[in-house]
Every structure is written in C-alpha cells, then in structure tokens.
Nucleic acid binder design. Sequence first.
DNA 1: CTGTTAGCGCATTCAT
DNA 2: ATGAATGCGCTAACAG
Lengths: 357, 357
Amino acid sequence: MSTTPPGTPPNPPPAPTRRATITDVAREAGTGKTSISRYLNGEFSALSPELRARIEAAIARLDYQPNQMARGLKRGRNRLIGMLVADLTNPYSVEVLQGVEAACHALGLMPLICHAANEVEMERRYLQLLTTYRVEGVIVNALGVREETLRPVGDGGIPAVLVDRRVEGLIADMVGLDNGAAAELGTRHLLERGFDHIWFVVQPFERVSSRRQRVEAFDRAMRDEGRARGRTLVLDLADETAVERGLAELDGAIDSLDGAGTAPRVALFAANAPVALRLALHLNARYGAHWQSRVALLSIDDPDWAELAGITTIRQPTYDIGYRAVEFLHERIEGALTGARDCLLPGELIVRASTAR
Amino acid sequence: MSTTPPGTPPNPPPAPTRRATITDVAREAGTGKTSISRYLNGEFSALSPELRARIEAAIARLDYQPNQMARGLKRGRNRLIGMLVADLTNPYSVEVLQGVEAACHALGLMPLICHAANEVEMERRYLQLLTTYRVEGVIVNALGVREETLRPVGDGGIPAVLVDRRVEGLIADMVGLDNGAAAELGTRHLLERGFDHIWFVVQPFERVSSRRQRVEAFDRAMRDEGRARGRTLVLDLADETAVERGLAELDGAIDSLDGAGTAPRVALFAANAPVALRLALHLNARYGAHWQSRVALLSIDDPDWAELAGITTIRQPTYDIGYRAVEFLHERIEGALTGARDCLLPGELIVRASTAR
DNA sequence: CTGTTAGCGCATTCAT
DNA sequence: ATGAATGCGCTAACAG
C-alpha cells in the first residue's frame, strides 16, 4: 500500500506481520507481563512513573492492541452483548438500534447486531451463535418464536431484555411502546375527527404480543364510543394473494361509503409502518394521488415517507426504547436481582393532512 | 458519557451459572479433552463409534456449547468479520447488509455489524474496536475518512473490502454500483423524455468517491448532448440553513420555466435516496401534491416510498453488492494474493409516473 | 484409535 | 513497586 509519501518520515511503525502480544510489549519495555497488564487496566498507582513511561513508549512503538478475546477468556467477561433484530427493514428497528448503540457506548459495551430478517430459523441460529460467543446478555426483538428457542436466555441462562414484544413463557425485562395507550390515542383521534368507519389493519399476530395488544386496545376504544363502526383486517404481508383478498374487502367498504364530495368517513388505522406502506401503495394505485380525499390513514410508527404522504402517525420513542433496553440489560449483567420489569413508553400523535379537517 | 472502551472496566465479574466446559464434558464422558475436541471438529474417523456415542450423550446432558472465544484464541481465527456501515438509516445500507448476511451464512462467517451513524469519530472507534476483537477482515462502507483512520486495514493489516466508496490512499478490493454508467443512464433517460433543464442534486463530496463519480458522469452526459442545460446543486443535508438556500435556488429555476400547462421541462436528478426524500418533501410542501406536474424527479436508489411517490429510480443491486463483498473478503482471508480488484455492478432503471410521458 | 502435553494472550494471586 | 507462576477453554502436536 505504501501510503507514506517517499521522503516523509515514517511516523507509523511498520505493520507487524504478527500482531504484538503482551509478551512482546513486556520484552520491549524490559519488564514483566504483569506490569503491562496493570498498565492496560489503569492500575497506575502500582507503577512507577518511570516504568509507566517505558511501557507507554513500548506500546506505541509496537502499535500494540490488547486482544479482547484473550482478555474475555481470562476474566470471563467480554463486554459483548447481542442485539437480535427481527427486521432491519423496518425503520423502527434501525431507530431503536441508535439508542442501543448510544447506550452501549456510554456503558462500555459492544453490541453484536444480528438480523433475523424475519426468519425464525435465522433467529434460532443467531441466538445459538451469540451464546457460543459468550455474550454477556442479549436484547431481543423477537419474531414469533416460542420460549423454546430462547432457552439459553432467561432464568439461569443469558440475561435478556425484550424489545417491543413479549415471548410466551419467557419472564424477562421488557421495554417498548405502551401499545394500549397508543392504539387508544389513535382511535380517539379518528373518532374525534368524525370518522365513523374505522378499520384496524394489522399483520398476523403469530407470537408478536404488541400486535395483539394494539388490536385489543382498538376494540376497547371502539366499544367505549359505541356509535362508530370498527373492524379489524389481518394482512399477511408475506402472502400477496391473501393481501389482495383483504384489500378488496377494504375497497368494498370504502366504495360503499363514498359520500359524493363530502369528507371521507372511512379511516384506516395501520398497526405499523410496513402495513401503512402497503395500504398507501394500494390506495394510491386504486384511487390515484387523491386517495386521501377518500380515506384517511393513520399509522403507528413514523417512517420518513409519512411526512411526504401526509399521513397522521403515532411516533414511537424508539431511541429511548433502545437506550432503556441496554440500561436494563446492563443492570442485569451487573447482577440486579429484581423481578422482571416493564418499561412502557408513550407514543406521540403527529397529526398531518390525512386526518386534519 | 463514559467512553471507556469495552474490556477495560475493572468491574467485579458476576456469578452466573457456569457453563459446561470441554473438561466437564470429558469427565462426563469418561475420556480426555482431545477426543471431545475431535468430536467437535468432526474428526469422526478418529473416534470409535462407541466413544462418539458417549461424547454425544455427555454433550447433550450438559447442554455443552463450545466457547468460540477460546477456540479463536487457540487457532488464531474466530470467524468474525466486521461490517462497518456509515448510515443504517439509508435503506441502501440495510439492503447491502442482507447480502452480507446471506454470504456470511453460506461461508460460515459471523458478521459484526457496526454502525457509524455518519460520525467519523464513531467510525474510528469501531474500527479500532474491531481490530481489538481480532476480526479476520472488515467490509467498510466508509464515511469521509482519510486512509489514516483505516490504517489497521489494508496491506499488512486486516484484510478489507470497500463498499460503494473508495478511501483515498487505501488500496483494497471494492464493490459497488457502476456510478458512471448509472448516472449516464439516468441522464440519458431524462434527456430522451424531453427535459432540457436538469439539476443534479448531491450531498457534499467530502471523501465519498461515489458522489463525485456520479456528478462527473452526469456532467459528461450533459456535455455530450449539448443542447440541454445541466446544473449541479450540492445540498448538505446536515445543515438546514444551507439546504434551504439551495432549494430556493431550485425554486427560482422551476418557477421561471413554468410552461403554463405544458409538460414540465425541469427534472431533478437526486444522487441518492436521502437527497431525493429531501427534495420530494420540499416540492410537496411548496407546490402541493401536484408537484410532479411541475418537476420530474429521478433518483439513484430505490427506497420503498419511491413507488408511492411515483418517482423514477435507478435501483442498485444492493444484495449482490453485499454478497460479493463478503466473497472478496473471504478470498483475502483465505490468502488470495491478487492485486486490488473492482466489482462494479450495473443499476436498473425503473421508470415511474414522474418521467413517463 | 486415544490420552498427555503444551501453549494461544491475558489477568491474577502470591511472593518478593 | 514489581514479577513469576497459574490457568481461562480450547486445539494441536506428540506419544502410546
């Protein structure tokens, strides 16, 4: 590579073929490995300034970097934590990740990010891999897995914190949106704005607890109101045929309520961004760019295109969720013995053209 | 914020249930560690069926999982590779990641995903961390860093493969979009469709080679055509004031060319999705939902909302880029001595309403 | 076929 | 204040 221009003093030491080890440094500094180790761990009180300087110099000269693996092996902690993400394609996940990273940074942890890409088999594989690398804990945004898959996690196993979703049979800390409050918030908003036919659209529950909770809160809010009509549509985004069947049902409802020029009475409440996108695409294709004058769309999650499309959303405190999750996990790693805790954060309603009247 | 690097904090280790070690298994199976090791490595030819069965049973009974860290320490390879992503918020990155993951899976590698979140300091930190964990190689989607930061990488250092962008002064394999061809493809498309005032909008080049290449190809294509007018607008998305200044300039151009009912003559060519989104948001705010009748928008990158907004795009072969990068890296890890290779993949033009006439 | 031995790079007693 | 010795969990010679 030789990026050093000829004639320039070679400030960086020549890349050692074999990385320097603690032994090399000890020899170079004319001392024992113990002192080097002490230096590395900041135990300066046990080092004469003179020795300390020599060590410093030797390290610089050799471009020495302690091997984390070896350190981990020795002390039984490697500062690694696993972050299992169900679907990075969902902006929600990326945002949560930002919080996770920030917290890890602050706590001296290194997140090992694993992406299950919505495949249960991947999830299983990564979880197994994580335990094999002896991560000190895991943050799990689980797919529809049974507790079975998470066996290494939880009691006696690796400390774990759940994000967004519970896992049946697994008792662990969990942090996520207050789904009940959020769904209620959205529903009330739609009712207030005068929509009297509201469809809650959600992916199959499988084992995703948050989805179920959102639907339940929606149902409850609709029941409380009494007059308006609420229905639920389950859309399996992985099955295009099924999706189209569901959408046709929706179309029927919308068409039948066409108020001939009056404000729309039908509102769609998407349980999350992927669903909202699918709905928007369909409505756009069917009714053209003016679909908003026919139906209102509200979604939990606030993807970047929401502003562009002008749909109302309930933004999740994603960053905080991630940050909080790491904090919980850190406490567990440090040995906190509390019972499983829940941290439910509120969502924020962002009203846009879609439901503004 | 404590920036204590992982591995350094001298905290008391917790006391989790101790996982079984190879020694435990050996004892349980009434044999030596060597045989267990052989079993783990699939050297069955050196194990009597009887012993093999006993080992199998012991492993199951103890729920034993070999410690990768220890294995890595011993054999000098830990099957870990680093994947440094500049900005996970960009769908491009997530898609590349999918390819990376698939390839890793296929090659028995474990990707350690690091997200620099557009901060050079983060990038530096993660790179340092990766070498500290002794990853066998890194795939780098670099920010505007100098070769300096990547010193551990490259000749003599950790094998590396660049994605999307070159790093000044660093000679390494690189895989990404054929920027020249892509920008030319887009430009020609716009010209064919009759747009005669084309703005290429791009973020500051900093050290991102792909941005510069795209602009250059655009300029070239415009020069070749001759008649039409091409301009470049640099938009620093991180500086809102500057962004608005730039957008105002754009507005002026659009307004002055208002064809009073005729088809739009102005087209915007966004160098990537983030830029395209910013443009769309602005146009939507300024001209209303009908902005498409005033300006055309074409973008490199094909984010999910492109279909919704109906803008034309040039989709990058993201998955392949990621997959290929891992393959390159794997070859390097296995000792390939070839000179630095380039793999430029073609983009695919997806024509949508925005430029369809 | 199978077990013994000797480290991998480092942190930790325990002496000095 | 400093260093020698021991072992973390595992693999790789090297014997039997």
